[in-house]
Structure formats: C-alpha cells, structure tokens
C-alpha cells in the first residue's frame, strides 16, 4: 500500500507482460537451452544411445565441420536464399511494384494474382508444384514449354535447386511487392515531376531516382526476407524432402533428416545450434542496421 503511483504502474506493467513472458520462456527459451545441451550428447531416437545417452563434449561439432552433408546443406541454403529471396522475389517484386505504381487498368486483378501464391499454405503450395514439375512429359511445365522446343523432363531431378528457387520466388513475390509499393509511396511525386521536366526517360528515372530513394526499404526487405527464407521447411519437405541426393537439402530439412530419419538427435541439435547462431547473427544485424526504434 505504501507503493508510489509510479512503482505501482511499474509492477502493473510487469504483471501484464508476465503471461507472454511465461509462454516465450517455456516454448522458446527452454527449448533453445535444451538444444545446446542435447548437442553435447549422443542422444538418439533409436539404438543403444536412445537408452543411455552419453555426454560427448564437442564431438558432434567436430563431426559437423568435417561432414560433407553439412557443408553441402549450407551451400544449398546459401544458393537458395540468394536465388529466391535476394534475386527472384526482389527483382520481380520490385518491377511489379514499379509497374503497378502507374495508373493501369486491371490493377487490382494483377495485384490479386500476385498476392494469391503468398496466401496459400505451404503444403498446398508444395502439392501444386509437384503437379507442375513432376511426371516428365505430363508435368504442366513440360506441357507449357514443349511448344517452345524445350525437351520434357523430370524437372525436380534435372534442375532441383533451380526449381525450388523458382517455387519459393513464386511464393514470395507478393511480400517484396507490398514492401516496395510502400517504399514507392513514400517518394514524393514532385521528384518524378522534376525529372520528367528535364526530359529523363523512364529507365533513367528508375535507375537514378526510384532505386536510390528506395534503398532503406530494400535493405529492410533483404533482411526480413533472408531470415524468413532461412527458416523455410514445409514447402521443401512436401516438394523434395531434400532430395535427390541432397541437392535441395536446405538447412531446415537437413536438421529434420538428421534428427528424424537418421535418428541422431544429438547431432541434429548441433546443426540446430549452428543454425540458431547464424539466425541470431542475422537478427542482430537486422536490429543494428535498421536502428529499430522502440
């Protein structure tokens, strides 16, 4: 009762935040801590190690860094992130935003079409792309490309990594577009007006005015989307499960396969810890570079 008004408010705020804090500690913080502990053991789902897991120190990490599968997975993840989020989604999303920034007919129709892939749950996205890509001459892609003289093939086997990049690009254009549209809206119209007065072409305007002024938005997009792409799982799991031969085994799939197909929970956790560290680094970068204000 002797508490001051301020102290009471402070306690009240802490209390209001408490339920959320409990949820986060129970379902995020404790598991993350457990992951670190597990990564130092040979815990497994099957075999003798499942009965009596042993502390093995840094053995999982040593194995990790000499494991070809892990480096392959890192490489695949890198190409996947660069290819789909940094290049595919960004370029198409940016062009779409610029194009839709004009007063076009059917603007809403175009928009809806681009947004649709983003609204679909990832399992559904996986299925419909299996129909697009699998089945040789039956696949939709082969049917579409046949008149252009492209030989029909098993796309998920002849170019697996490229295909998952295409699929993820398809899914993520909307996000890039939405963000770029908001960035474009922030550019004052008179800047364009002045440029046009000076006789600048559309291309010049794009390269010299639009792009430089969009830079902060692009930065924000890059970070959010990179981190998001890094965490993808369901889409690739339904499409390829990491195959063929590890060609699409992005890090999330690699962890899952090590833990639930090879039953090596300890080793899987070591990979997870490395992945957590990379994500945390990216997250810290996100906070730092964008100077998030609170």
């Amino acid at each position: 009762m002797a508490m001051t008004y301020e102290a009471r408010l402070a306690w009240q705020n802490r209390l209001l935040l408490l339920p959320g804090l409990v949820l986060l500690i129970a379902f995020v913080l404790i598991p993350a801590g457990t992951a670190i502990w597990l990564s130092l053991t040979n815990e497994a789902l099957n075999g003798a190690a499942a009965l009596n897991p042993r502390f093995v120190g840094a053995r999982n990490y040593v194995r990790l860094f000499t494991d070809g599968g892990f480096w392959n997975s890192l490489f695949v993840t890198f190409v996947f992130v660069i290819g789909s989020s940094v290049i595919g989604q960004f370029v198409l999303g940016l062009f779409a935003a610029v194009a839709l920034n004009r007063p076009l007919a059917f603007r809403q129709v175009f928009m809806a079409a681009i947004l649709l892939p983003n609204a679909v749950p990832e399992v559904v996205a996986g299925f419909i792309w299996i129909s697009m890509l699998a089945g040789g001459e039956h696949s939709t892609l082969s049917q579409v490309l046949a008149p252009l003289g492209v030989p029909s093939q098993q796309w998920l086997q002849s170019a697996p990594l490229l295909m998952i990049i295409v699929v993820n690009t398809w899914r993520g254009i909307a996000f890039a577009m939405i963000l770029m549209t908001s960035g474009l809206a922030a550019i004052p119209a008179d800047v364009y007006e002045a440029a046009r007065m000076d006789g600048a072409t559309a291309r010049q305007i794009f390269w010299r005015i639009t792009l430089p002024l969009l830079r902060p938005t692009i930065f924000l997009y890059m970070l959010v989307s990179t981190v998001g792409t890094f965490a993808i799982f369901g889409l690739i799991y339904t499409l390829t499960r990491g195959g063929p031969g590890g060609a699409t085994e992005i890090i999330g799939i690699y962890i899952y396969n090590q833990s639930f197909t090879a039953y090596q929970l300890g080793f899987g956790s070591a990979v997870a810890v490395v992945m957590l560290a990379i994500s945390a680094l990216l997250g810290a970068l996100y906070v730092r570079i964008l100077k998030v204000e609170v």
Binding site: A35, V227, A284
Partner: peptide, 26 residues
Amino acid sequence: KRPFLYAIILVRVLPPTALIVPLYKV
C-alpha cells in the same frame, strides 16, 4: 523494455526445425 523488444525479434528469426527436438522434450 529495449532489450526485451530486441530479444523477441530474435525469436522471430529462429527457425522452427531447430527447436523441434528440444521442444518435444519440453
């Protein structure tokens, strides 16, 4: 306030597969 808000951004970037095994134990 500030550390908390930064810290929970990190939660957003945590890949769920990385947490799934320990989460199962919890």
